[in-house]
């Protein structure tokens, strides 16, 4: 129901929590995105964007861990 797309924060502006926003890059397409809901997100972070709002900072370490687990599933035969 909800299209949300990963993008990388290129710049952050606005100190007011309600209007914190930044430029986010989606594979070479940049758009201004509201960052009010991801106060922890800084330049260089990946965020998940829905209708012009970042709704999460993507946890790169966690993503790596999950893909590692899935890779091990290949050689280990079973990840359960």
């Amino acid at each position: 129901m909800c299209l949300a797309v990963p993008g990388r924060v290129e710049s952050v502006e606005g100190s007011d929590p309600l209007e914190r926003r930044g430029s986010v890059d989606f594979g070479g397409v940049r758009r201004e995105v509201q960052l009010a809901f991801v106060p922890e997100a800084e330049r260089g972070d990946w965020v998940l964007v829905h209708v012009g709002f970042a709704i999460a900072r993507i946890d790169e370490d966690e993503a790596e861990r999950m893909l590692d687990e899935l890779e091990r599933m290949e050689t280990g035969g079973d990840a359960r």
Partner: peptide, 16 residues
């Protein structure tokens, strides 16, 4: 969906 979803969700978004 561990890279984005956390048990408590997004507190700032929920408060809004």
């Amino acid at each position: 969906y561990r890279r984005s979803a956390r048990p408590e969700g997004n507190r700032a978004a929920r408060a809004t």
